[in-house]
Amino acid sequence: MSALTFTARGMPAADIDCGGLTCDSLAGKSAAEVAKLPILVGGRQTPCGDVFDVSGSDTMQIVFRGNGATCNRIGAGMTIGSIRVEGDAGDHLGLQMKGGKITVTGNAGDFAACEMKRGRIVVQGNVGDSAGAPLPGNKKGMSGGMLVVHGNAGERLADQLRRGQILVAGNAGAYAASRMIAGTLVVLGTVGAHCGHAMRRGSLIVRQRPPLPATFADCGTHTLAFLPLLMASWKEAGAPFATLPVNPRAQRWMGDTGNGGKAEVLVWA
């Protein structure tokens, strides 16, 4: 069985809402039936077949091919199966997903893993701003599962992260871990200014000391027994996370004392 494949037909400039094109929603449908389904393109109802050539039959394995950054909400709410994006994905990748796996060979836009609950997202390239953050009005971001980014992350990474893990091999922009509630954020590269602003709990783990606000206190260097266990959970994420030398010693900062936060920023010693 070949994967149910959506090949872009000369992408319109309009945003394409791919939220309805998941293994859950398309189960039992043929490619021809899928092509007839209405999706929102630029806010207008459009047959899916007008923007994608739909082929293949295995609805548990979906492929998006040749997309621009205009395909939004890929994998929204999915619970099963796998989605592979060959190229870039737009905004809200994996919005509120509850299971399954999404892989992106290129970059993803803003709000990747937005309110994700379970499952796994792997982005080979970069993610935009607000990865792991919640939708407007909501106060809790990603609450489970794992987001792996092999490239860089933009700004406001893990904003209001509620639980789960975000692993970034590259750099993160300004305001990383802002208002973080809990969970784990790992950034192997550099971290931008105002890191940890209004952080509440959770852990930011880095290799070089990031610029922290004055409302973080240096708590000294510690041997942290949980670190090796945490690192063991990164095996599935593959290199470079799986191949990091296991190191339980880290310098620990705690904050943001401005809001009574007890979050920790750990810098591997």
């Binding site: 602003h197 209004a198 606000p213 004055a214 409302t215 240096d218 004392t257 401005g258 009574g260």
Partner: peptide, 26 residues
Amino acid sequence: NEQLGEVAQALRALVRGAPVSGDAVA
């Protein structure tokens, strides 16, 4: 102005009697 977020957080800490590192903020 870009540092005002940090300053506001420091003021919050001072109001609640929590520690602030260093002797200056921004």
